[in-house]
Write a protein that binds this DNA or RNA. Structure first.
Lengths: 239, 239
DNA sequence: ACCTTATGACAACACCGTTGACCTGTTAAG
DNA sequence: CTTAACAGGTCAACGGTGTTGTCATAAGGT
């Protein structure tokens, strides 16, 4: 053993697989993403990925230390794709709203990766660029550094957390999701108004909104609060 | 097979295990929670739980259809514990803040259950009570129904999402967590200020805040925005 | 006291991630 | 052009997982 994984830059001997495929970090990451896209969250295992690539599962351990490492790479690629298509307009609130929704959408498109990337710091290129960009928007808007960091942190974690939450839900096997919907219709919509007055009174709204993610609403609340804070700051700076 | 699981109410023959334990849904749920508490997230598997109970793993399938069902039961018990110790004061903002922090803390204490309960509707007793209580606080504060539901949804999902996010992080094996911390210190704190001016400028704040959960900050932002919205509503109602 | 049957136990299945030992084609040095 | 080193692919195995079909038995109603 000693060191099984060789850093991508130092790779030289491109020996093809028995089935003729030439492996690479990128090919593996792409295939993993494709697998998740096509066959859902649970389709991703080292063994299946090996099969999809036309390589022995254990070969992957020449490129990634564990499954986790692989998932971090996938996660970073995801961040990269989101950032690559983002064009800041100059208005901080619009930009952060837009970016938040993009990150959320990206997460939904790749549920399993989203869950992993949400609670891990990849420390890879794209992640760093994203951090820089968001901090830039906030500081550009006039938030003082400490405040910018505080809001940055809440903003990013919120996007990641909702992304993970909603995509975990998305990734449920179909019967389970149907069961969820049924619970709302069957259980919550029919609770008696004497024991559960508040639920009964709002049942129609509840059933309607529960279908959609609450992320946009939560995001708007956060941005409103930030805007209010900024107005305060500007006011006291002038006064 | 046909139907392996018998509803709790209909159980009659309390046959003890080979090792002399009398199983029950409650005992299983409690043991599962204890196992998570004592030996961390990964200590929970059907087989280990069976061992801890002194029963064959397959016996558990007489009580729960799959692991998932079991986890939902665990999740609901968690909600129950949180609600049982909550004493509303009458001030909506204080109460929601308090409850949010409690839910978050509860999630952190039981990482694996938190992750599961975050994206599932249990439809069980305690969950329903929680929904009723929160809606009650919001409507009592004067939010009109549609608005109350919108805020309820964002509030709950945010609590669950951050709970899951932070507890997933908590549940990382120790070496992985140390690695995370190292990434912040080693990578982010040392980026050159010419290519990453915003990160460099705020590095000290970044490193400091990244240690703590951003949930309290996010919660406060959400509640501020809700308060602002409420003031607006009251204003237009009077005017 | 008997019979039914709920419920526990057993054994097996198909999967999983990971690793140590082995083998071989590529490549760089002579 | 040959050759030797070794990166990188393969194989087989380990110990784990959730789940299920089948069997055995003690509890409880009659």
């Amino acid at each position: 053993m000693s060191e099984r994984v060789v850093p991508a830059a130092a790779r030289r001997r491109r020996r093809p697989t028995k089935q003729g495929v030439v492996l690479s970090e990128e090919l593996i990451v792409e295939t993993a993403l494709r697998l998740i896209e096509e066959h859902g969250t649970e389709a991703l295992s080292v063994r299946r990925l090996g099969r999809a690539l036309g390589a022995d599962p254990s070969s992957l351990y020449r490129y990634f230390r564990h499954t986790d490492d692989l998932m971090l790479a996938v996660a970073d690629e995801l961040i990269g794709r989101t950032m690559r298509t983002w064009r800041p307009s100059g208005d901080w609130r619009t930009d952060l709203r837009d970016l938040g929704l993009r990150m959320h959408a990206g997460a939904l498109a790749h549920p399993r990766a989203a869950v992993l990337s949400a609670y891990r710091v990849t420390g890879r290129v794209y992640e760093i660029q994203a951090v820089e960009a968001i901090l830039g928007v906030l500081r550009g808007a006039g938030f003082p550094d400490a405040e910018a960091v505080r809001i940055y942190h809440a903003y990013v974690d919120q996007a990641l957390a909702f992304g993970a939450l909603d995509s975990a839900n998305t990734a449920l096997p179909k019967p389970a999701r149907d069961a969820e919907a049924a619970v709302w219709q069957a259980t919550y919509a029919r609770l008696p108004s004497d024991t559960y007055p508040h639920i009964a009174a709002t049942a129609r709204y509840l059933v309607a909104t529960m279908r959609h993610s609450s992320y946009p609403a939560a995001l708007d609340l956060l941005l409103s609060a930030a805007a209010a804070r900024l107005a305060e700051i500007r006011g006291s700076a002038e006064g």
